[in-house]
Design a protein around this nucleic acid. Sequence first.
DNA 1: CGAATAATTGACTGAGATCAACCCCCGTGG
DNA 2: CCACGGGGGTTGATCTCAGTCAATTATTCG
Lengths: 249, 249
Amino acid sequence: MKARRKSPVDQTGIESQFCSIDLRLKILGELPFFHGLSSQALEEINRHFVEVGYAAGEVIYHAGDPARRFYAVADGKVKLLQHALSGRNVLLDILIPGEFFGSLSPRDAMDYPDTAQAQTPVCALSINSAEFRTTLDRYPEAALIVLDLMANRLQAANENVFRLSSMEAEQRIASTLLKLGEKLGRSHEGGILIDLPLSRDELAEMTGTTTETASRTVSQFQAKGLIQGGRQWIAITDLDALKSVAQSG
Amino acid sequence: MKARRKSPVDQTGIESQFCSIDLRLKILGELPFFHGLSSQALEEINRHFVEVGYAAGEVIYHAGDPARRFYAVADGKVKLLQHALSGRNVLLDILIPGEFFGSLSPRDAMDYPDTAQAQTPVCALSINSAEFRTTLDRYPEAALIVLDLMANRLQAANENVFRLSSMEAEQRIASTLLKLGEKLGRSHEGGILIDLPLSRDELAEMTGTTTETASRTVSQFQAKGLIQGGRQWIAITDLDALKSVAQSG
DNA sequence: CGAATAATTGACTGAGATCAACCCCCGTGG
DNA sequence: CCACGGGGGTTGATCTCAGTCAATTATTCG
């Protein structure tokens, strides 16, 4: 077969794992839900956010911890996952800059339903949930945007349920790769590189299969020329053919 | 085995399939997201809503139809589902009075991602999506409540993904019955009756299994005394034991 | 009562999990 | 610079859960 090069996914993280202070207002203003607010409003909002940095692999919070904070991804990728007592992990979502996670409920006495973990080095902005709620109260246009984002997330979760309920492993994997390509795709050597270090194991956790099945399926897709991949990376090389696999075999 | 009586689920629907006009303001005011608004505000909001009635089994909208309207359930149960091209259905959620469905995006050119179908006779209030958005603009406190409800829905969907990804069929079914018991449970003869006509087939569609597997598992649960059930109904008779099955077998 | 729909039960089969061995990178340190 | 170690990936053999196909029995309704 063909030689497999080093991962084309850019693995160089932010040097310090903290955001630079001078960029904070810019980052805040570019968050979808604060986009378009006056700089005065941003200054005020800024005072309530703190910046937090995480190394790749670091856990931001654990499922079951008291849910007190809200986070917005400024740089890097964050994965949301749940743990089964069998030891198996379920990867619910991978968040990119501009997306949010954590709790937006002002009430205490709730726990995070899932674990948030930095997938790459991450810079995030964080705020107490109750304070974020107050902010949304003051800037209703932001609340509506958060609502839209939430609706999209719900729809994506439902698509996930659909995949898991009605597709075979091979189709689920194809379909999930396509979804990742849409969200994280970067053009690369004529293909669509999924721009994220993604192990076979994680692909399995996203698709409700085992590492072995994910690996076998990826190999088979490579043999058919649908994708290209190596250690921790995958690129789609034949989009249409992959789509056709996703649809029925 | 023991004689199986008629379904204890109340199947009597609302007589006319239309809500009575005089109740509309009361219903509107009791929607979680309009709760607490002034009667003046409700009067104004009322003008934008229309009442719609559906017979049990009737489709409210189909997946793929242009998404122009937002609905709130006033009475009855609505199921949200998706169809696989294999013919298989995936039952995403069952909505009870106070919950909403449809589109809340003001933008045209979107399609409903799923099908909404009346599970029982249903009375719903409906409004054009763009107008609903305008209403949320004017009553930001309502927007925040819709946001909370949406967050709950997202969490429920993620739990569903978790079940489908990490549990065996038997556990998924037990766990889904428990969830249904929480949401739709009514005390009945010492057990928790799931107050909704629910066929084995629908249970299968909720749990990513087949009718046969759902039926076998239900029979087995009955034999162990965990539940009681018949045509289109199920009641939980041993909550703790069912929980223990859901958790690991 | 009889037709239609829902549920049950059995036999068979196959997709994919499990168990196990091995390879291939890639970074590290002697 | 090379040996080594470990994490990620691959591949094979086996086994089992649940899907499929098929026939039969309940239950409801016209």
